[in-house]
Design a protein around this nucleic acid. Structure first.
Ligand code: FES
Ligand code: FES
Lengths: 135, 135
DNA sequence: AAAAATCGGATTACAATAGTCGGATATTAT
DNA sequence: ATAATATCCGACTATTGTAATCCGATTTTT
């Protein structure tokens, strides 16, 4: 379905929350309570965003997360890729060379679909957390 | 995940096939064999497209399907909506008035996300079967 | 009447998403 | 030091959605 996963939804909400409260370090617990997101799931999501370098973590009693970049440099596309990898519209062109799909060799929709995907990704790539948060 | 379902993939492939062979009526069996799509599943998909008026069916021994409109008037968005309904990016704004999500009343990402969805849908809405089929 | 097609409900199989649990590690405050 | 609070991480479970199948009915042409 053309739908964003909860993980991405939570990721956007969390990053937006951290962006707005950029004066201090924000714990997963605070986001979880304030945004009504299951704590464990959110933790996992934040850890993933951390691994991909979108946020930085601080362990320990006064720990939490801060953004690694400015909200204006953080796009929805970044978040999607960080949380789901380079997802592709159709399984067919997951691996650019190896043929997954029987139709691949002489498939007539492959190229147009790749262009379509590119355009959609461009939309995600030009929407930033700064715009969403309207700080 | 940002991925088109098999149903949509098959729908696009089938409509494109029908568009290219618009001189004659095309059976589900033919598409299934030529495109390597599971017959039963494809049948269901075609029936759904028929109900939504994108194609017209002819029962009986020489039956099959033809397009209701010109390929240039048939967009990927039409196919998505026909096969999955008005899908929305986030559950939150599935029902435009009733609040599904706790955050709804004063949610800061709702509007930006709706705009984002609108833009993406615009991309789908401007890609036609004619372009994909390159007849 | 037989054959070839669509129609349609019900069911099953599988995969992805969403969420949970338990414990380890790091850091700070007391 | 030690307790408290936080991230970290793997494994697990539950739920949902997708994909596919089954079976019988109906329609239409030959
Ligand atoms: S390559 Fe798989 S449908 Fe085109
Ligand atoms: S309304 Fe549900 S996240 Fe905004």
């Amino acid at each position: 379905m053309i739908k964003l996963s909860k993980k991405i939804e939570y990721g956007i909400l969390a990053l937006q929350y951290i962006a707005i409260h950029s004066d201090k370090i924000i714990s997963a617990k605070e986001i979880s309570e304030q945004m009504g997101i299951p704590y464990e799931f959110l933790s996992k999501t934040l850890q993933q965003l951390m691994k991909k370098g979108l946020i930085q973590s601080q362990q320990g009693i006064r720990g939490g997360y801060v953004l690694s970049r400015k909200p204006a440099d953080l796009t929805v596309k970044d978040i999607i890729i960080a949380l789901e990898g380079k997802s592709s519209f159709l399984d067919c062109f997951v691996s650019s060379n190896g043929l997954i799909c029987d139709r691949s060799p002489n498939c007539s929709i492959k190229d147009p679909m790749e262009k379509l995907q590119f355009k959609v990704m461009q939309v995600f790539g030009t929407t930033t957390i700064a715009e969403i948060a309207t700080i």
